[in-house]
Amino acid sequence: PDLGLTQLFADPNLIENLKKNPKTSEMMKDPQLVAKLIGYKQNPQAIGQDLFTDPRLMTIMATLMGVDL
């Protein structure tokens, strides 16, 4: 199971919303991170391994779920 990750990354406004959010806007200036996020739309399971190697993803996930870290 993808634990709902498919829906989190399926939002067509995902990148724009993250660019507008004060907690994630600075991160979204990294083209490699943006490319990763776009890739998760097609393969949400890929985030599982990346969560352990890129701490920014935890902040992004929390933001998408509405959790304040």
Rank of each mutant, 00 (worst) to 15 (best):
F9E: 01
K20P: 00
M28I: 05
N17F: 15
K23P: 03
V67C: 09
L51K: 05
K20G: 10
T53Q: 12
Q32S: 13
M27Y: 12
A35I: 09
L8C: 07
L8Q: 04
N17C: 07
R56C: 03
E16M: 10
D54I: 01
D54Y: 02
K29H: 08
P12H: 06
E16V: 08
T63Y: 15
L57K: 00
D50E: 12
I38C: 07
I47Q: 04
A10R: 12
M61W: 15
F9N: 01
I15C: 06
M58H: 09
T24W: 02
V67G: 12
T59S: 08
I38A: 10
Q49P: 11
D68T: 02
N13D: 12
I60Q: 00
G39P: 01
T24K: 00
M65R: 10
K41T: 14
P1M: 09
L37P: 00
D68M: 02
K19R: 13
A35T: 09
D68Y: 01
N13P: 02
L69D: 15
L69E: 15
F9G: 02
I60S: 00
Q42W: 06
V34F: 03
D11N: 09
D54M: 01
P31R: 07
G4Y: 15
L64H: 03
G48M: 15
M28L: 06
E26L: 08
T59G: 04
M58W: 15
L5T: 07
Q49A: 13
G39I: 11
D30M: 01
G48N: 14
G39C: 10
K41H: 12
S25G: 06
D54H: 02
A35P: 00
P1T: 13
E16A: 10
K41I: 15
M61Q: 02
I60P: 00
G4T: 15
I60L: 06
Q49H: 12
M58L: 14
M28Y: 01
I15Y: 03
Q45D: 13
L14C: 05
Y40S: 01
I38S: 08
K36H: 04
T53C: 07
A35H: 07
L33E: 00
V67E: 13
T6Y: 10
M28A: 02
Q7L: 11
D2W: 06
P22L: 05
L51C: 08
M65G: 07
L14R: 01
M28P: 00
G39M: 14
K19A: 10
V67W: 15
Q49L: 11
P31L: 08
K20Y: 06
T53D: 13
F9L: 11
V67Y: 13
L3Y: 14
K23S: 09
N13F: 12
A10N: 12
L33Q: 01
M58I: 12
L3F: 14
P1R: 02
N13L: 09
N17D: 09
N43Q: 06
K36C: 04
P12S: 06
D11A: 04
L18R: 00
M28V: 04
I38H: 08
M61N: 01
F52P: 08
L64W: 03
L3M: 14
K20E: 07
Q45F: 09
P31W: 06
M58S: 07
D30A: 01
Q7K: 15
P44N: 04
E26Q: 09
M65W: 08
V67R: 08
E16W: 05
L51W: 12
Q42C: 09
A46W: 11
I47R: 03
R56L: 08
N17H: 11
G39L: 12
T6K: 12
A35G: 06
K41R: 14
P22K: 07
V67Q: 13
N17E: 09
N13Q: 12
T24S: 03
I38Q: 13
N17S: 13
D2L: 10
L5K: 05
T53E: 12
I38D: 07
Q42G: 10
M27W: 09
G66H: 09
F9K: 01
N43T: 05
Y40Q: 01
P22Q: 05
M58K: 09
Q7E: 14
K23R: 13
T6A: 15
I38F: 06
M28N: 00
G39S: 14
A46L: 14
K29T: 11
A10L: 13
L8T: 04
T6H: 14
P44T: 06
N13H: 12
V67L: 15
L14P: 01
L69K: 10
D54L: 01
L3E: 14
A46V: 09
G66N: 11
L37F: 03
V34L: 11
L51I: 13
A35K: 11
N21C: 06
N17P: 01
M61C: 09
Q7F: 07
P22H: 06
F9I: 05
K23G: 06
L37I: 12
E26D: 08
L3D: 11
K36W: 07
L69N: 14
Y40E: 01
I47V: 12
P44C: 05
L5H: 07
T63F: 15
L18M: 03
F52L: 14
